[in-house]
Nucleic acid binder design. Sequence first.
DNA 1: ACACTCACG
DNA 2: ACGTACGTGAGTGTA
Length: 618
Amino acid sequence: MRVYRHRVAGDSVAIRVPQTTEELDQFTAWAQRATVRGAIALDTETSGLDVFSDGFCLRTIQFGDASEAWVIHWERGGHFRRAAAQVLRKARRFLIHNAAFDWLVLDRHAGIALEDLAPRTRDTRVMAALVDPRQPQEGGIGTALKPLSAYYVDRTAPDAQGDLTSVFRSLGLTKANGFARIPLDHPLLNLYAGLDVIFTARLAPILSAALDRLGVRERLVDYEHEISRICAHMQRRGLILDVPFTHELNAALREDAQEYAGIAARYGVESVNSNKQITEALTGMGETLTERTAGGAVKIDKAVLLALADMDLQWKRLGVRTPNPLAEAILKSKRAGKWRSTYAETFLETVDSSGRVHPFINSMAARTGRMSVTRPALQTLPSSDQMIRRCLLADEGHVMVSTDFQAVEMRVLAALADVRRMKEGFQSGGRDFDIHMFTAQLIKGEEATEKDRKLYKGAGFGKVYGGGISTLARQTGASEDEIRRAVTAYDHAFPEIRRASARWQREARATGMVTVSATGRRMPLDRDRAYAVVNYQCQSAARDLLGQALINAESAGLLDAMRLPIHDEILASVPEREAKDYAREFERAMTFDLFGVPIVAEAEIGKRSWGSLYGATY
DNA sequence: ACACTCACG
DNA sequence: ACGTACGTGAGTGTA
């Protein structure tokens, strides 16, 4: 047996690495005793993060408690695998940091189904996010194992990932291939692999106590674990990529980007992404650039370039000036380049050998609990054109169904802030009630137009998000005077919003600058942006309605149909012949009564491709 | 590493 | 005293 000793928070801990069947028997005996005492901490070391790619492999599985870790070399096969698999099957409770990843690894590579392991798991990352959801960039600890361990357990907790990358370099390996190629017996790999479970085991009771002390309900912790499991389920299923189409699109976008970059080059712009070059060239053509960025540089963005190209925000000709051909070429080249590299290219990079992409869903990304989706970022595909979404398909014989909450943040605002006239509107208006038109009419009378609706929609969001006159004017395209009048009228019509904002800010200041959602979620407020509390309350309530909708949908038998959560929407792949029934069930799963305000959803049935829900049909 | 830009809700 | 749009992920250029 190889044994590595280390000190954690003043205690001596042991990392054991069995080499023989007898030593593996010692491991299983330890596991039997440990599972009687409590939960076993669990972690894996793998070749990388791309769980669904062909080259991926599971290298070690670590088990441990607060003072002892066992690193089982799965890669060696035979007895090693049997011993680890037996413990995975039999132990009653596991502690995992960022469980979704390990669930999927073990599901795919160790024969332990997500459905089997998830109900036995407590995720320390979920617990940490409920204690303090802030990311390091926002002044928080973050939810990574190392900074959490350093903060809660031992200041000197080693940075396993960081330290290993220097080991990789000394072995002639890189960050990208190091985890796959580092020898299985490398002492530092085993030491760090073992320490990770020891830290996880030690974090769990500390975080549990913190949640208790802060009054975070057990119910919320359970709820987040359910959502995490459902998201992992969606990730495992993935979406079909139309590979031939995506290759064609990739090539077409590359050609487009090159063609327009060629035009830009004729004006002296070698790289269309260099704002420095663009500024020089445009100034040389006699254009005056007045806008500045926060950092003081000349602002060259889409809005600036569109104005120079005589186009509105929808790229339609305005006819108010002579279009600047350089601005137009830059716009077109940049768009094609971004769409290719961020979307089409990433689709092709991440697709598995069976033709599916499995985006990573972080079920608790934002401070408000909002989820994020990465590799590829499927929550941010262009919606102005169907071409990118056209790459993704429903299953064979299926169609895409997208079910959206209707104006959920405004409904949530009405409910939480008890906005009388808004609540009356939502209560009497039924499922098609148009809050923004209602607002426009409230202020302008019955003759309110579609243009007024747009104006007051902007003003309405501005209220929710805490925007000012100038920002709202810029966003809506209306004049500052017009906006000022709208905002005044808005405040008059819905005086409860300002009162709720003041109340929430006061409550937060009284409790250490933390605002607590209706579900008990703790959201730290930045002292100099206390007005953001309205947004946090609305965004988190909307997120928790979506989370509950995911759970409701599973209860209704829709789990296998679900593909993605997109903030206020659930995307699903459903059998074509039963699409209407599925659509109705999704709408039901997304229907709530929130403090007397109806929360409603509308399903749209598309065709095979996701793009079919965005205009053209395929 | 940071600034800037751009894609979404 | 006053006013501040919110939340993400991702690519490229520059220092």
